[in-house]
Design a protein around this nucleic acid. Structure first.
Ligand code: ZN
Ligand code: ZN
Ligand code: ZN
Ligand code: ZN
Lengths: 138, 138
DNA sequence: TAGGTTTACGCAATAGAGTTGCAAAAATGA
DNA sequence: TCATTTTTGCAACTCTATTGCGTAAACCTA
C-alpha cells in the first residue's frame, strides 16, 4: 500500500473526510481491482463495525468513488467509478457480468446497447449478463 | 371472474393443486394484466396470511406460471409467463421497463439484444430500462 | 364416495440485509 | 489549540422473506 498519498487525494477530491476506515476500504478496492460485495468487506475488515462499513459504502457511492451494481440476488456489490465521477455527475453505461461458477461480478468495458421503445422515455439501462466468465471457462 | 374453469386448467397443466388462494391470486394476475409486487397482492388479499402469499408466488414461479422480475429495489415483482412455460422450461428473453413516475414495471415485447463477449459464455441476459413510461409521458 | 396419503394453510418464530438514534471520538479549519 | 462538523461504534430497529409445525384441505385410488 504505497499509495497513501494517492488515496488521500482521491478522498479529498471527492469531498470526503479522510479517516482510517475510508483509507482502508478504498485501498482494498484499489488493490483488489475487482467488484466487492458487502460480505467481502466484512471478511477483510473483521475488526470494523458493520454499520461503519455500510456507511462508508454509502458515502463512497454518493460521492462518486464507487458505483452500486444492480443485482437481484439481495447482495449489494460495488465497483470503482471512473476518475471523472463525482457527487454531481456519475453515470455508468457499461454492462456487468455475473459468473455462475465463481460468483464474481465484473464491470465490462462495453456499454449497454442503446434501446429505444416508441412512446417511452428511456433514461437509464442496466444490463446484467450471466454465464461463465473468462477465468472459469478456461 | 368468469374464468374459473380456465384458471383451473392453467393450475392443473402446471401441476399445481387447486386451492382457493391460488385461484384468487391467478385470477388477479389475469384480470389486472400487469406485473405485481408482493405489496400489491398483500393489499388485494388483506385477509390472507403473508406467508401463504409468498408461498403461492414461489410455487407459481417454480411451476412456470409467473416469472420473477429481477430488480435491485428490494421489492420482488412478478409477471405472468407465456403459455409455453412450465416447471422444466421457462425462459424469458424480454426486456423490462421500470417507470420512475408511477413505479410500475412492465414486461416489454422486445427481447434483450444479443451480446457476445469474447472469452465469456453468456447464458442469460437481464435488461432493465428505467425512465418514463408511455402512460406517464403523455 | 370413503379412506389414506400428500400437499397447502395459518400462525409464530426466525433469518438476513440494511438503516436509525445517540453519545463519544476523530477530523477539519481558523 | 479550540470550536465546529463529521464519523464511528453500539444497540435497537425496519423490512423482506423463509422455516417449523400442527391442522386443514386437496388429491388419488379402491
Ligand atoms: Zn460513478
Ligand atoms: Zn460497473
Ligand atoms: Zn416463464
Ligand atoms: Zn417479464
Amino acid at each position: 500500500m504505497a499509495r497513501y498519498s494517492e488515496i488521500k487525494k482521491i478522498l479529498k477530491s471527492h469531498k470526503l473526510r479522510i479517516t482510517d476506515r475510508r483509507i482502508d476500504v478504498l485501498e482494498f478496492f484499489l488493490r483488489e481491482k475487482r467488484t466487492m460485495s458487502f460480505k467481502d468487506l466484512e471478511e477483510e475488515f473483521k475488526d470494523s463495525d458493520r454499520v461503519t462499513l455500510y456507511r462508508t459504502l454509502n458515502a463512497f457511492t454518493e460521492h462518486g468513488v464507487l458505483h452500486k451494481i444492480p443485482d437481484d440476488s439481495g447482495f449489494a456489490t460495488y465497483g470503482l467509478c471512473h476518475d471523472t465521477c463525482d457527487s454531481e455527475d456519475h453515470y455508468h453505461d457499461h454492462m456487468h457480468f455475473k459468473c455462475n461458477e465463481c460468483g464474481n461480478i465484473e464491470c465490462l468495458e462495453e456499454n449497454v446497447p442503446v434501446v429505444e421503445i416508441p412512446g417511452y422515455q428511456v433514461k437509464e439501462a442496466n444490463l446484467i449478463l450471466k454465464g461463465t466468465c473468462r477465468t472459469c471457462v478456461a
